[in-house]
Design a protein around this nucleic acid. Structure first.
Lengths: 201, 201
DNA sequence: ATGATAGATGACCGTACGGTCAAGAAAATC
DNA sequence: GATTTTCTTGACCGTACGGTCATCTATCAT
């Protein structure tokens, strides 16, 4: 059973870096197999289709995120608004280190895939949406705690959280168009200026 | 010459809708030719490569924008901050009408292409970057006029402009992940809350 | 020891990809 | 009217795509 899971995860590992650094359509299964040292027939033993591989890749990236610096950023021990700063910082350093290693800014895999496939594959779109929704609630929790503490004035926490997530994705997109993670450094902190007021009753 | 330019623009027209509604890699030249009623050899008479077609498509979209509702939005006769409202509105109604016709939210072609190709093709990336830069300056002008008028407090107009553009792209991305243009309506207006202060001397 | 199951192999399927080319038709130039 | 240029045609190139399959080899429980 161990060898099996190892093959499977070698496939996923090979796919992760490629989907991230190029695109879904531009990476072929043959290439992934070659890189993972796996036969194509073996690939289809583990994944019914390319889309299923993408699902697994998204899951792994989401895990990396949730257990990596996102967990650190949204540490309940930190003051709520500092968590947001921390997340921006972490995203900046992550993209920067990717560029140092890889020579290019690769951006956010979830954003990349969303814009590429979400008009063509509702199942992948739903999966990506779920991840964004999860991220939104992290922001929302932080905002609500900040309001409860009196650190910030009351606001529509859910919409503001969504706006912040959108802003983060947008900044990463723009930075990718410049191939320059420094844009994250310059624009990132402004995320805290975003506010959507509560609807008047 | 007329027939020739007509063929060329039929090719571009067929490519525009397809690149917008799917992706660059997912649309083949054969399909574009079939739809434009053109032979493949004829295609390569007008475009040296698929990338050159993409360049032309980007140019046409940029023209549509610049001469369409962006020109209306950034009308110097409008109060500067209202121009930004107008742009958000226009983006919302545009995406909404696309969805009504097409059944899906297609998002921003420039954002879509940026995330798909900018790690793979520096020439396309440069082209897209130039369009974002142009858009940034529209925001910047509006902001500077608003500051001059005293409508808003002084700020770093260039960085704030860039932040606003990023936010717009991010909101469109998130809306696409939900296949719901209404998100633009809910989140869009918050663009005016974004602020990046001037660096202290 | 045996039979079932899980995994690996590599040839193979049809189709589509971006791109090329020689030849012919149509238009513009002289 | 002849020549040159622009445009069109349709067959063709090699390669890669996602996916299938029969066969073989481990691994496992009984």
């Amino acid at each position: 059973m161990n060898i099996a899971t190892d093959t499977r995860s070698r496939i996923i590992a090979a796919a992760k870096t490629r989907f991230h650094s190029r695109s879904y359509a531009n990476v072929g299964i043959q290439e992934i197999c070659d890189n993972a040292g796996v036969q194509k027939g073996s690939f289809y033993h583990f994944f019914p289709s390319k889309r299923d591989l993408a699902m697994a890749v998204i899951d792994e990236f989401a895990d990396d995120w949730a257990n990596g610096f996102v967990a650190e950023a949204f540490d309940p021990a930190l003051p709520p608004m500092e968590r947001i700063d921390y997340l921006i910082d972490a995203a900046y350093f992550w993209q920067k280190s990717i560029k140092e290693v890889h020579g290019r800014m690769l951006g956010c895999i979830f954003g990349n895939l969303t814009l590429e496939v979400s008009t063509q594959d509702d199942i992948l779109r739903a999966k990506l949406l779920a991840i964004f929704t999860q991220a939104k609630f992290r922001f929302k929790d932080a905002l609500e705690q900040a309001v409860a503490e009196g650190t910030i004035a009351p606001l529509d926490s859910e919409l503001t959280a969504e706006a912040m997530l959108a802003y983060l994705e947008g900044v990463i997109l723009l930075a990718k168009s410049q191939n320059d993670p420094e844009l994250l450094y310059r624009l990132g902190p402004a995320i805290k200026t975003l506010r959507i007021e509560l609807k008047r009753a």
